[in-house]
């Protein structure tokens, strides 16, 4: 059984003068012990999908359709009180490292401990403190630094502390949103190594949201590529992000463009021709394929009909007219 199953999820943001559908009928699943990456440019809806799982969406956002099933429990429509019991216990979050995700006026150990006392009130303060120290040790920060304030930590240490906080209630699923963004290269590598160790040693299920394809390839079993609020390609990260000679093995032109634009996979920091321009304005109704305007291989059909999803090999799917056998 899948640990997390998102089906046909749509999320609308209310903005002045209408609504914007940031996520449009997105489906994806995460198996027990599996790690799934969500890739795409900023603004493609990947963080919205992540935040939707524990229903942490901003106030002006609504889930307008779809189901989110976590560990057999359907989540959409649950009350805030019910969700509060599930949050962190069932699904924990690691926020972007550059963010001010830790409270600047509270000591870090206290911020971690309060997660324990919230979800396991029976645990004594001493036991909770011990557990916090163990977590510090585990993520590679000296427990003697536990009583520090966030500003006394480097970016990499803050991110480790964040991971320690996320793991302290032993969640079933960890969602990491851009966990390496804004860190220096060495810290990035260390954080990725830590996430890999967690997966191996603890059998943790992980969703990693990142625009960094190299990071996803390093940590994730499978990858979901999103563009303008829809899923354009899914498959094993080895297959989707891998190369065959000099050619990308990805099936969708967008994924190919992403890979070509990516410095770590190609060595050079040059933007591909195909990635010129911006994702479409989501507040207007869209016809056909959303990538059509930027696609180097665009056809007349792409502008009128949404592409069907095609299975290229078992588990590897993409939504592109080029892949459909013959004109349909």
């Amino acid at each position: 059984m899948n640990l997390l199953e998102i089906s046909e999820l749509s999320v609308d943001y209310g903005v002045s003068g209408g609504t914007v559908r940031a996520v449009d009928h997105v489906s994806l699943f995460v198996q027990e012990g599996e790690s799934v990456g969500i890739a795409g440019e900023s603004g493609c809806g990947k963080t919205t999908v992540g935040l939707a799982v524990p229903l942490l969406l901003p106030r002006n956002a609504t889930v307008s359709s779809g189901e989110i099933v976590l560990d057999g429990h359907s989540l959409v429509g649950r009350s805030e009180a019910e969700m509060n019991r599930l949050r962190w216990k069932s699904v924990a979050f690691v926020f972007q490292g550059a963010m001010n995700a830790l409270n600047p006026v509270l000591r870090i150990d206290r911020q971690i401990r309060e997660a324990i006392t919230r979800h396991e009130p029976e645990v004594s303060k001493a036991a909770a403190t011990t557990r916090v120290m163990e977590m510090f040790d585990f993520v590679g920060v000296s427990p003697t630094r536990a009583k520090s304030y966030p500003h006394e930590f480097s970016g990499g240490m803050r991110q480790r502390a964040m991971i320690a906080m996320a793991l302290v209630c032993r969640p079933r699923l960890l969602i990491a949103d851009e966990p390496t963004t804004a860190l220096d290269v060495i810290s990035q590598s260390q954080i990725l190594a830590l996430l890999n160790r967690l997966r191996r040693d603890q059998g943790l299920s992980l969703v990693m949201i990142s625009h960094d394809l190299a990071a996803i390839k390093r940590v994730c079993d499978r990858v979901v590529v999103m563009y303008a609020g829809v899923v354009v390609e899914v498959g094993s990260s080895h297959e989707v992000l891998g190369t065959q000679g000099r050619r990308a093995r990805a099936a969708h032109p967008y994924t190919q463009a992403l890979i070509q634009a990516h410095p770590d996979l190609r060595g050079e920091r040059t933007l591909s021709e195909g990635l010129r321009g911006h994702p479409p304005d989501l507040s207007t109704p869209l016809v056909g394929c959303r990538f059509a305007d930027r696609c180097p291989k665009v056809m007349a059909l792409c502008r009128t009909t949404p592409p069907p999803t095609t299975e290229i090999s078992p588990g590897h799917l993409a939504a592109c007219h080029l892949l459909s056998s013959g004109p349909s």
Partner: peptide, 24 residues
């Protein structure tokens, strides 16, 4: 951002307001 973290931790509205927001 830290308020989103607090909410993700499942803290009650009151704890979020008093312990996390009010102190700042």
């Amino acid at each position: 951002d830290y308020m989103l973290t607090a909410r993700a931790k499942g803290l009650s509205r009151w704890v979020m307001l008093v312990r996390h927001a009010l102190r700042n």
